[in-house]
């Protein structure tokens, strides 16, 4: 059942993205930025946590989860340290994705040549 929920949620997010891409002059760069910002605002009252409980991995795959993880790490630190914690904990949970992307793309860029 959770697979169907994942399919439906992630598919719907991608469908919304495709509709925006087809009907406006925005580039894919704008699109990912919009969805990250939407992800952070959805998490303002822990709404995204409920979506993750419902859709599982399907809610973690889209880029909206990146915004969710940013604010989640920040708030986890902020409960102890106050506003300073926001700054210290922001990358706690997202670091895996960012570091993996940096390291893999650096190493693979050394190994491969660009093709066109």
């Amino acid at each position: 059942m959770i697979f169907l929920n994942s399919f439906l949620f992630c598919g719907t997010i991608c469908l919304i993205g495709q509709i925006i891409l087809d009907n406006t002059k925005l580039t894919p760069g704008h699109l990912t930025t919009i969805f990250v910002v939407v992800g952070t605002f959805l998490d303002m009252f822990s709404f995204y946590d409920k979506i993750i409980l419902w859709a599982g991995g399907g809610a973690l795959v889209p880029i909206t989860s990146f915004g969710h993880l940013l604010i989640h790490g920040a708030l986890a630190k902020a409960t102890n340290l106050g506003p300073m914690g926001l700054i210290m904990g922001m990358f706690d949970l997202t670091s895996a994705g960012i570091i993996a992307a940096i390291v893999f793309s650096f190493v693979l860029a050394l190994l491969f040549k660009p093709r066109d």
């Binding site: 697979f3 598919g11 991608c14 469908l15 509709i19 399907g58």
Partner: peptide, 26 residues
């Protein structure tokens, strides 16, 4: 003219499969 309905359906199916694949990996 791009076929918007076709584009939307492809995005929905591929995106949905990515989500289900993520859940499967977890």
């Amino acid at each position: 003219k791009e076929n918007r309905l076709y584009n939307g359906m492809i995005a929905f199916i591929i995106g949905g499969l990515m989500g289900a694949f993520g859940e499967l990996l977890i």
